[in-house]
């Protein structure tokens, strides 16, 4: 087995009319070593799904090359298909078949005999906590159960530890189901699998991935371990409303977020009470400069605005004097 399980160089892809093409991928490259969990993080339209579809041989790039498990995704696509398992954005299980029937069917399609397929289906149902629901039609399943079954179906025929493509595995799931699915991905990773997952959620990438590539406009605008990326942009911010202009100017240099109109500054914090308390004591020892404060958790938009200068201007659109615009409700303390 090769050391680099997934690698891509200079992938480009455009959709639409030749006269008016929409460029979805613009020279994307990535490398995923064996056993790593790699997250493609980006908003809708960043090119995440297209990347997964190219790597999983479902579509071809206009230019560039990609190899998965050592095989070229175009010339050797049949071998690639035998080596990977794919779970797409849309559930790929039949609602009017039972969970067990779906898995047995998938197992049969990968070439297992009837008895092996039955055995494998039972094994996966057990592993994904679906044994009790095995004989119920999938349309009675919750969203989370459906996703787990979908993941199991993707797993049925691939050799383990394999290569997994999970396209937005938790989109649309409630928090509990999301956590359950995270555990599934961690278990896969513990078993030595190579996982490429796409997500719109910074938190998800942070919790699961060894390595994150932030995708925007069809290219990787930032890449690194979660720690590296977080160091470049803090996950939390302590937003302070100051009592006067003097205090604002004194602290402005330390801030990552400025809003002079409202005398608000955002300072990096790890979000813990200890740090927030220490920070407040440090910057305002006389307890006169800070009027109010709130903890703001970084949203994906914040990361983008921080990581991509030009995007920030486009996204901000207007000159409000703010460098970042909080898009999620700040957590009031």
């Amino acid at each position: 087995m090769p050391e680099t399980m997934i690698e891509a160089h200079g992938l480009t892809k455009s959709y639409g009319k030749p006269s008016d093409p929409v460029r979805v991928l613009d020279g994307l490259g990535l490398q995923v070593p064996r056993g790593e969990v790699f997250a493609l993080l980006g908003p809708n339209g960043a090119g995440k799904t297209t990347t997964v579809r190219i790597l999983a041989t479902l579509t071809t790039a206009d230019s560039g090359t990609a190899r998965v498990a050592g095989f070229d995704v175009v010339a050797d696509r049949h071998r690639v298909r035998r080596a990977i398992s794919l779970t797409g954005q849309f559930a790929a299980v039949d609602a009017t078949q039972t969970g067990e029937e779906n898995l047995r069917m998938t197992a049969r399609l990968t070439g297992l005999s009837r008895s092996h397929a039955k055995h494998r289906a039972a094994e996966l149902l057990e592993r994904f906590g679906l044994t009790e629901a095995a004989r119920r039609q999938v349309r009675t399943y919750s969203g989370g159960m459906r996703r787990r079954l979908d993941l199991a179906a993707g797993l049925v025929g691939s050799p383990e530890p394999g290569v997994f493509f999970l396209d937005e595995p938790t989109t649309g799931l409630d928090p509990r189901s999301r956590r359950e699915l995270w555990q599934v991905v961690r278990d896969l990773a513990d078993g030595g699998a190579t996982v490429l997952l796409t997500t719109q959620y910074l938190e998800e990438a942070d919790r699961l991935a060894d390595h994150i590539a932030v995708l925007n406009g069809g290219r990787a605008v930032a890449e690194g371990s979660p720690e590296t990326l977080k160091a470049r942009f803090p996950g939390h911010r302590l937003d302070l409303v100051l009592t006067g202009r003097e205090a604002y100017l004194r602290l402005a240099a330390r801030a990552v977020h400025h809003s002079p109109g409202t005398l608000t500054l955002g300072l990096p914090t790890d979000g813990t009470a200890a740090h927030a308390r220490a920070l407040l004591d440090e910057i305002d020892p006389h307890r006169t400069d800070v009027e109010r404060f709130s903890v703001h958790s970084a949203s994906l938009d914040d990361v983008f605005l921080a990581l991509t200068g030009e995007t920030a201007e486009e996204a901000a659109g207007e000159t409000t004097g703010e460098t970042t615009e909080p898009t999620e409700e700040p957590t009031h303390v």
Partner: peptide
């Protein structure tokens, strides 16, 4: 739906 992608990946 996603069925056809799954089938093709198989």
């Amino acid at each position: 739906g996603g069925i056809i992608d799954r089938l093709r990946s198989l």
